[in-house]
Design a protein around this nucleic acid. Structure first.
Length: 638
RNA sequence: GCCGGCGUAGCUCAGUCGGUAGAGCAACGCAUUCGUAAUGCGUGGGUCGGGGGUUCGAAUCCCUCCGCCGGCACCA
């Protein structure tokens, strides 16, 4: 028997007996063996202790390699599980994967874990690391594994093996020390000591068994884990910084909006916040016009009969608000599409008129589950930059690609470049035949293909009336939110009786495209605030310039400067309070005002202003007219 | 909706063992006119999220409702 191992540099070595990754590393250098985490065998990550029984190319993965992190994190989850079972006998193990910054493990236990428990558990984890228990991989048969876990009272594990895994496939079991083991795909570190100390348990929460709300609720423990202490520290620092960018905190600090108990999930916009809103709205309105949309406005409530016809009653009523008057029941609109179809239906349309594009800053109410609400990101009352395109099937692709280009331009104008594109496919609860869904999904794929973008697909996540392209952006703490969307809908136009007359004088049903770029104004503004940490670019800033006199002798001139700035279309304010300039600079800096125009006696005499930009200590003194001109030019919307 | 945590002045927060609520900032008043991130002194401000209970007495203990926060589920 001869096994040929190829190294990354192309060198080869022949072995008589199957070597392990650890042995190979050891033969290269003891320090490499010490740093080794796993071994990559023909591109696949293997345990260092697993014999390599065939010729292969290998690469030793050390703890500083990016692939090492997921192994370290996954190991941390297992060490957590062992610690919990040692401390709390009777607790069942379920699943515990690595996450983006650490790991979690779900346990079945009647008593929830407390913060004090977390400290004890983390302490025990450190002990398990110190014990440096060997981690060994074993292969068990399906039947053997089910029996074993049932005998131990691990009913969740046993259920998973019975229902989630194929009976004829052998299973890998990882034994950690003599006592503890878990079913796992691996790979793992050779021993618990290699996990290191750069981990920290962070939070507990509930989680449903197999992600299903109708099944048992488990106790999830989350942790962070990194290769080094420094990396962990850096991550904690990052989280602290992210908290300062939180739009809920900044919304209060910058006096943009508030929410209160009487209107959960609904926003009270303050003057400054509404100014920001208007800046965004006016920008989007220009986009509407430039891309051939006609702006419309539909009622906020309509008789339920309309929502029964549209399919919302059957598919969406859990999320709708209702109201009643004179024995009629009305629904508060959760979407704008049926309203736009009514406007479309008010006239007769020729195929020559298509595509017809309607747009609306559509105010929608959705009765979202209370636990889903989250600042401006997830609300119950929101306004969409909604639009519906009525077109013929052969026009779908060009409409979708044009929309895509427009959307990417809008995101770039607001400073966003990292937009994730996803394609959400047919959900279980839906309208229309499979054949129609095939067509709709393929139409969107074709458009994305021709736009030349990369996308990921999300099976089961489409709207009940059609598949959708989703545009996602991340908030300050890395949560991803859907902003824009483009959806193909072959169902609703027919249900609501939309028609056009084709070239043969025959009535046809148009296709409807649902689209939004910023998505919800609320969510978009939340993302904007976090993206800029409150320091909005000049064109969006609620207050663009504050004119601050140094002495009251300059008050009159300061008012004149303010008027000149306002006359040039700038949002300018004078700060005539009897405060020192230091105080004013500090306060307006904290309020993230992008430009400060300081005027003292000197400026008043020479009719100049001294400009100071947010966060920049260097100042520049220039003639009043020149300053106005410069700021006005800079404040122009893209 | 589910699990857990939290709710005290406009904001950020303290409040011990159940003994009748406090700080800083902000606000207001007075003084100060000052050149780039906090001028000084003084004053007012609270149904301790709502309701109920235990107790001689509740911010504090118990029940319940509401909201918020973290996660899960949901998310056109």
């Amino acid at each position: 028997m001869s096994i040929q191992i190829t190294f990354p540099d192309g060198r080869r070595k022949t072995y008589d007996t199957p070597p392990t990754g650890l042995a190979i590393a050891q033969s290269i250098s003891p320090s490499l063996a010490k740093k080794a985490v796993v071994v990559k065998v023909d591109g696949e990550l293997w345990d260092l202790t697993r014999p390599i029984e065939r010729s292969a190319s290998i690469e030793i993965v050390t703890r500083d390699a990016p692939e090492a992190l997921q192994v370290i994190r996954h190991d941390a989850a297992h060490v957590l599980a062992q610690a919990v079972q040692e401390l709390y006998p009777g607790t069942q193990i379920t699943f515990g994967p690595a996450t983006e910054d650490g790991f979690y493990y779900d346990f079945a236990r009647a008593e929830p874990f407390t913060q004090a428990d977390l400290e004890k558990i983390e302490q025990r984890m450190r002990e398990i690391v110190a014990r440096d228990l060997p981690i060994k991989r074993e292969i068990w048969s399906h039947e053997e594994a089910v029996k074993f876990f049932e005998r131990c009272g691990e009913t969740f594990k046993a259920e998973w093996i019975r229902e989630g895994l194929k009976p004829d496939e052998p299973l890998s079991i990882y034994r950690q020390g003599d006592q503890w083991l878990d079913l796992c795909l691996g790979p793992h570190l050779p021993s618990t000591g290699r996990l290191g100390t750069a981990f920290k348990l962070t939070k507990v929460s509930g989680a449903y068994w197999r992600g299903d709300a109708s099944k048992a609720q488990l106790q999830r423990i989350y942790g962070l884990a990194f290769a080094t202490e420094d990396a962990l520290k850096a991550h904690l620092k990052m989280l602290e910084e992210a908290e300062k960018r939180d739009h809920r905190r900044l919304g209060r600090q910058l006096d943009l909006f508030h929410m209160q108990e009487e209107a959960p999930g609904m926003v009270f916009w303050h003057p400054k916040g509404w100014t920001l809103w208007q800046a965004v709205e006016q920008y989007v309105r220009r986009v509407y016009r430039a891309s051939g949309y006609q702006e419309v406005r539909a009622p906020l409530i309509a008789d339920v009969s309309l929502w029964k016809k549209s399919g919302h009653w059957d598919n969406y009523k859990e999320n709708m608000f209702f109201t009643e008057s004179e024995k009629r029941i009305y629904a508060v609109k959760p979407m704008n599409c049926p309203g736009h179809v009514q406007i479309y239906n008010a006239g007769l349309h020729s195929y020559r008129d298509l595509p017809i594009r309607y747009a609306e800053f559509g105010s929608c109410h959705r009765n979202e589950p209370s636990g889903a609400l989250h600042g401006l990101m997830r609300v119950r009352a929101f306004t969409q930059d909604d639009g519906h395109i009525f077109c013929m099937p052969q026009q779908i692709e060009s409409e979708v690609t044009a929309f895509h280009r427009q959307a990417m331009k809008v995101y770039a104008d607001f400073g966003f470049t990292e937009v994730a594109v996803k394609l959400a496919l047919r959900p279980d609860q839906r309208l229309g035949t499979d054949e129609v869904w095939d067509r709709s999904e393929e139409a969107l794929r074709a458009a994305l293909r021709s736009a030349g973008v990369a996308w990921t697909e999300l099976p089961g996540e489409g709207a009940f009336y059609g598949p959708k392209i989703e545009y996602h952006l991340k908030d300050s703490i890395g949560r991803s939110w859907q902003l824009g969307t483009m959806q193909v809908d072959f169902s609703m136009p027919e249900r609501l009786g939309a028609e056009y007359v084709d070239e043969h004088s025959q009535r046809q049903v148009p296709v409807m495209l649902h689209r939004a770029i910023v998505g919800s104004m609320e969510r978009f503004i939340g993302i904007l605030i976090e993206h800029y940490a409150g320091a909005l670019p000049l064109w969006l800033a609620p207050v663009q310039v504050v004119v601050a006199p140094i002495v009251s002798d300059a008050d009159a001139y300061a008012s004149e400067v303010t008027q000149a700035l306002c006359a040039a279309g700038l949002r300018a304010q004078a700060d005539l309070r009897n405060e020192k300039i230091n105080y004013k600079v500090r306060e307006h800096s904290l309020l993230k005002v992008p430009a400060l125009a300081v005027v003292g006696r000197k400026e008043a005499e020479t009719r100049t202003v001294t400009l100071r930009r947010l966060g920049v200590e260097k100042q520049e003194t220039l003639a009043l007219a020149a300053a106005v001109e410069r700021l006005a030019a800079e404040a122009a919307a893209p």
